[in-house]
Design a protein around this nucleic acid. Structure first.
Lengths: 351, 351
DNA sequence: ACTTGGCACTCTCGGATATAGACTGCTAAC
DNA sequence: GTTAGCAGTCTATATCCGAGAGTGCCAAGT
């Protein structure tokens, strides 16, 4: 009775053969046959021997042939094993590191929004795939200043200056009209209390203070706190920056118009994509979803390589690359990793 | 010696035959043969006669057959003649007008930005093609209020409230730090002088006043005016709102991946597209570019139907639709026209 | 002078057929 | 355990063929 074959049983030779096969396939996209592989492997083994090994890999579900008489193509599991165990991540070449640095640091006078766009463009142009960067969570940004301006019709314009650079504004609806001086007073109070603290802690403090203030009956203070509460409501649309979707059009793997259409519509809808990337916020370093692993059927023939980026040790966003399953993981991983690190540094510098 | 044939020579019968042909082709996208056309035309003429007429139309360059034994397809000139002389624009059906009204007016509490997005979505969903709306020129919007906030490092945050709804902010670099009260004073002065006037006239007044103030040596006033000048600099990025690019993917006319890719890249680059639409700002009503008429090779197989929209008689932006040359011009023209009118009305209401 | 029916000719499209090339799996020998 | 060789399988490509659609032209009819 034959033993069921398991991945652990794979001897080093089979593994390195798998590695060669995946690399070969990544290079030229054609199913790899035994002859080709023998040549790529250095002629130390005959094609026939390789056929035997490939048959084992096939049984394990690591490779498949699209039809009887074609070569073998890595399956999702094959890629998985490849990236997990066969790929020694090696640091990016100096040349490319420099390029990334230049793009991110060299430009003068741009807001962090521009920085994210640069990063996205960078990922896209370096990998020739689609680059995605989710915008940093503002939750941990430092509140510099808050101001209110009176508008007509019981509305107040709230302005938050965050990180000395970014400005958010929001229109609040209030029960009555306020005069400039009332609003000024409220703003002064809030600035002195909360200036310099991050938005999360401001929010906590706000909620606490509101209770106290309500008891002490200082009406204006209650209202000021209420307005501030509204203004820093964290339910802002999260968003993302995307570049190079059109690069995806070049890959014949994805070229059935149907698939592409679905993919672009997903980009248009944003939500799914955002959720996928949000899931990466928790992870430590580079994360890789291969094919259906992402859980989104639209991305079935795509892989996603992502990494969170941090400012002062706080994870503030995620960036990554979306491309066909058959991508140069080695290179892409390095690029994503480096870009994440450098983007974090660049953001820190600007705050 | 045969007379060279000219469009003016076309008798009414030939024209109405051309009309039938174009309409037929728009309907089902197949080259139209003499038999089909005879049937569509009501059997009052035989196929052979129609063949003769079609031959004339061919000589005039109004129709072409893709190959010897296919029917005829309208050329760019054919479409041109069709839309210019054969199409009696008829008002949009009540049902669709209602739909547009609802989408634009019904939604509560949205900024004009949202309104533009609605319009773009609307165009896209109604026509199943790509909808484009350029953002209104702010030049003629009324300045409600201007405020300054001090930042560190010789920077000042300027906030413009326009139209009671929209807020723009900009960081200005100044020679020295200003205190809150100085800035407050400057803002008060500017608000009392310019509040309620549109940005163009504010700008004019500013430049004039700067000369006077410089003479009277009121330093703060000079600086206030200088800051305001910076803040309302009209060289803002113009931008546009786009919806439904993916709709274009459905048309087999555009389905060579190459063409599509170029098209999407054009969307990504924006500039060309923006220039095309900017050219429409001057025109009176609906404008139509067929195929290469647009002057942008990327749009060679596309037509553009656009119309400027106005607020208080002032043209503030352009909207339109991009789709394959073979589109239902009759319908699209009505939709674009109506949407432009209603968008103008909706914008006016919100100001 | 148009209009019409008829006919030969042309060109495309779809399906069927043949062929070359690329692999595999198996077997038997090393 | 490895290898060479061979039969068998499958794809991709080219080629052919017939059906269908449509034109252009001619000769006859109005």
């Amino acid at each position: 009775m034959p033993q069921p074959v398991r991945q652990e049983d794979l001897d080093p030779r089979a593994l390195s053969l798998l590695k060669a096969l995946v690399e070969q396939y990544i290079r030229d996209g054609q199913p790899v046959g035994s002859r080709t592989l023998a040549r790529a492997f250095g002629m130390s083994l005959s094609a026939a021997t390789i056929r035997n090994v490939m048959s084992d890999l096939d049984d394990l579900g690591l490779v498949r042939s699209p039809h009887t008489s074609a070569g073998r193509v890595p399956t999702v599991q094959g890629y998985r094993l490849f990236v997990d165990r066969l790929l020694k991540p090696q640091p990016l070449g100096n040349q490319e590191t420099e390029e990334i640095k230049q793009q991110l640091f060299a430009q003068s006078s741009h807001s962090s929004q521009d920085l994210l766009e640069s990063a996205s463009q960078l990922l896209s142009s370096l990998t020739q795939m689609a680059g995605v960067v989710t915008v940093p969570r503002r939750d941990y940004a430092a509140l510099r200043q808050i101001e209110f301006l009176p508008l007509s019709g019981g509305r107040v314009l709230a302005i938050l200056v965050v990180n000395e650079r970014e400005v958010q504004n929001r229109i609040l609806h209030t029960h009555r009209d306020y005069s400039s001086s009332e609003l000024q007073e409220a703003a002064n109070y809030l600035n002195s209390m909360f200036g310099g603290r991050n938005l999360v802690s401001v929010r906590e403090a706000l909620l606490r203070d509101m209770l106290n203030a309500r008891q002490s009956m200082d009406q204006l203070m209650v209202e000021a706190l209420g307005m501030a509460e509204q203004a820093i409501d964290p339910n802002q649309k999260k968003d993302y920056v995307l570049a190079g979707e059109t690069n995806l059009m070049g890959f014949q793997e994805l070229s059935r118009v149907e698939t592409l259409k679905a993919l672009f519509e997903a980009f248009e809808r944003k939500r799914d994509l955002l959720r996928l990337f949000d899931n990466c916020l928790g992870a430590e370093g580079v994360q890789i979803f291969i094919g259906e692993e992402s859980g989104y059927t639209v991305l079935d023939d795509c892989s996603v390589v992502s990494a969170p980026y941090t400012v002062n040790g706080q994870v503030v966003g995620v960036l990554g690359v979306i491309g066909p399953t058959r991508m140069d993981y080695d290179r892409v991983i390095s690029i994503v990793d480096t870009t994440a690190r450098l983007l974090g540094a660049a953001l820190k510098e600007r705050n």
